[in-house]
Design a protein around this nucleic acid. Structure first.
Lengths: 167, 167
DNA sequence: ATTTACTTTCAATAAGTTTTGAAAGTTTAG
DNA sequence: CTAAACTTTCAAAACTTATTGAAAGTAAAT
């Protein structure tokens, strides 16, 4: 396969993946672009490569920095900012896990806690709700535990051990 | 906490969680409603409870059925269709994992495979891309393996064993 | 064969999200 | 201080997705 095609294909696929994970398409595409770039890129280069506006590029680069997936970099003697992506896939995955845990798992756990133990466990509907909430909470807590281990685990230890175990 | 408040809180939280997972808000809310309902509900009851239109209710109930998370149910002597949710949280999670694997992991693996081995490994940019693609592929394949185990595993075996192992 | 009780579809509309580009802001250099 | 080089902001426009509701479809009951 030829370089430019492969690059486009990868950028598109990453964008699509992003969309279905609630990540803005462009943000994912910028990320893909930076991931495969050996050198950091400037905002102008990103705009140029992806055919997007200055504002769009700027906003999404900021968002990537917020997520801890992209860093600013300065070239000596240059005024312009350059950006490079974290390239260790493991670190990237942990970063994403950390953010999603904070943004999603925590709020739902909070809600489940608030909602557990509803008054009037004599009525059928209250019983059903309490049972469901209890199960969901257990599941969410277990997921949280696993995610926590993943986030804290070092290097390739996680998959290595787990896949071995459950083969 | 009082029942109706708790119910609303749970439905809202589930809707929000859905949104950030690329699941339509309403679809997630209908799911929450059915999960905590001891009896199956009709389309009209869903419309009523969530204040949504007939078309919206119908479309999202179909989508939930497609995902294998909700079933049709007939009450004897009644013509109208009723719907109930799968209530085993484990089964629900596996269902979701199965669907997302199909819709997301498979396409990205396909793209990564197509894109692996780009011509001209002498240039820096091609080297960088090949390296990145290789790493991403490895990661995606490992995730796929773990997801597969999860999907096929029975009951509470999965978390039980894994959490014990990595404590 | 007609009415009744539903379910499904779909074009129009509303709501939400992303993108643009020009203007305002900031920092460095001279 | 002023100009130049750059970054950030934000209101308006474009695009995407979700929702409505009325009309069409289906099937049981009379």
């Amino acid at each position: 396969m030829e370089y430019d095609h492969a690059k486009q294909r990868l950028i598109q696929a990453w964008g699509t993946l992003g969309s279905s994970w609630g990540v803005n398409r462009t943000m994912a595409q910028i990320h893909a672009l930076l991931m495969i770039s050996p050198e950091p890129l400037s905002a102008d280069e990103v705009m140029e490569e992806l055919n997007i506006s200055r504002g769009n590029a700027n906003m999404n680069i900021r968002a990537l920095i917020d997520w801890g997936m992209v860093y600013k970099e300065f070239k000596p003697g240059e005024r312009r900012e350059y950006f490079r992506s974290e390239k260790d896939v493991w670190d990237l995955a942990r970063q994403v896990a950390r953010e999603r845990r904070k943004r999603e798992l925590e709020p739902i756990l909070k809600a489940l806690n608030e909602v557990s133990k509803v008054e009037g466990a004599d009525s059928e509907k209250v019983k059903e709700m309490n049972k469901m909430v209890k199960d969901l909470k257990e599941f969410a807590e277990k997921s949280d535990g696993l995610l926590d281990k993943f986030i804290k685990s070092d290097e390739h230890w996680f998959f290595g051990n787990i896949l071995k175990l459950i083969k």
